[in-house]
Simulated assay, not measured.
Amino acid sequence: MKYSRFLTFTHQLLAMACSIWPAGLAAQEQLAEGLSVIRDFPSHFVSSRDVYIRLPEGYQEGQRYPVLYMHDGQMLFREVDTWNRQTWAAGEVLRTLAMEGGAPEVILVGISNLPVERHANYFPEKPFMSLPKNVRDTLYSLKRGEQPLFGRAVNSDAYLKFLVYELKPFIDREYRTLPGQATTFIAGSSMGGLISMYAFFEYPEVFGGAACLSTHWIGSFEQNFEIPAAFLRYLQARRPLLQGRRLYFDHGTATLDAHYEPHQQDVDRIFGGQPGYLSRKFSGDAHTENAWSRRFHLPARFLLSVE
């Protein structure tokens, strides 16, 4: 496919240009057995941020592991790190899955968000730039409380370059990973669901699967039909890139998730029936880490299981 080959070629060129590792990488801080964090992980592309690394139980010489990259890393492991005292308990979920034989052991990399830049980092850039200028200007004028919803111009393409050309090479060099596409996955919720979807389609040679929970199809906190329509156009054009990979979506029906169902149904009409696609609805589930934690085992099993 010409589109995929062009992406691969240009990404390889960029990787060569960015081969010099940024200076100033901090030492890892051990938080618990198997869980550490690198504070202010440096980048040429985006602002530095904390990166959590959770190793599987029994991590040992002679064995290599798949890698799951997840956004909003400070919400994944410890209540003390979260703003709402809720957490995915992602390490416990993955450990239970492995013990039950539902999925292999996996290295989990949690990339923290920067609250002031989160919307700009996670809003897919190509769909955003396809919006009419007046819609983009309106989005940039929105506030969340006293702060702008977008703390800067949308830069999700740069955020993905950070993941692919800086963070992933570091993880593959420092840990016993299985670095290939078939064993590299990405996941997140809400805006993290959008950027996981975007990574899956922008880097088909890198990510073999993506899990997008409570995907924030409306793009802001006000309904605007042009935003989900832009996502649909983007996805329709990339429909063939699903082949041979796995893509998971879900949504609840309460709080913010109540807005997602019609847009998710439109996405399901694009991909439904294709091998490697799964979409789920969870009646009564709200837009919270507690809800995502309860069902995280389902997308994890879907992405990681060898059938």
Rank of each mutant, 00 (worst) to 15 (best):
M1A: 15
K2Q: 13
S4D: 09
F6L: 15
L7P: 00
T8C: 07
F9H: 12
T10H: 13
C18W: 09
C18T: 13
L25W: 02
L25V: 09
L25Y: 00
A26E: 12
A27I: 03
E29H: 10
Q30R: 15
L31D: 04
G34N: 01
G34V: 05
I38L: 11
R39F: 06
D40Y: 13
D40S: 15
F41S: 00
S47C: 11
S48L: 05
R54M: 10
Q60D: 07
Q63D: 01
V67D: 00
D72E: 03
Q74Y: 00
Q74L: 04
M75V: 09
F77E: 01
F77T: 02
E79N: 10
V80D: 15
T87K: 12
A89C: 12
V93R: 12
L97G: 01
A98D: 03
A103H: 08
A103E: 02
E105Y: 07
L108R: 09
L108C: 09
P115T: 07
N121V: 04
Y122K: 10
M129W: 13
M129P: 02
M129Q: 15
P132L: 00
K133G: 08
N134L: 06
N134D: 14
R136C: 01
Y140V: 02
S141T: 10
K143M: 06
K143I: 00
R144E: 14
Q147L: 13
A153N: 10
A153E: 13
V154D: 04
D157C: 06
D157L: 10
L160H: 03
F162C: 02
E174W: 09
L178Y: 03
L178H: 08
Q181T: 06
T184H: 08
F185K: 00
A187P: 08
G193H: 01
G193L: 08
M197F: 05
E202K: 12
A210V: 06
A211S: 02
T215L: 05
I218Q: 13
I218Y: 13
Q223E: 09
N224Y: 08
I227Q: 06
A229P: 09
F231I: 10
Y234H: 05
A237R: 11
R238V: 03
R239W: 03
P240F: 07
L241S: 04
R245I: 02
Y248P: 01
F249Q: 04
H251I: 06
H251L: 15
T255L: 11
L256W: 03
L256R: 03
A258H: 02
Y260E: 03
D266R: 15
V267D: 02
D268T: 11
R269D: 08
I270L: 13
G272N: 04
P275R: 11
H287S: 02
T288P: 05
R294S: 09
R295H: 01
P299L: 04
L303C: 00
L304W: 06
L304E: 02
L304H: 07
E307K: 12
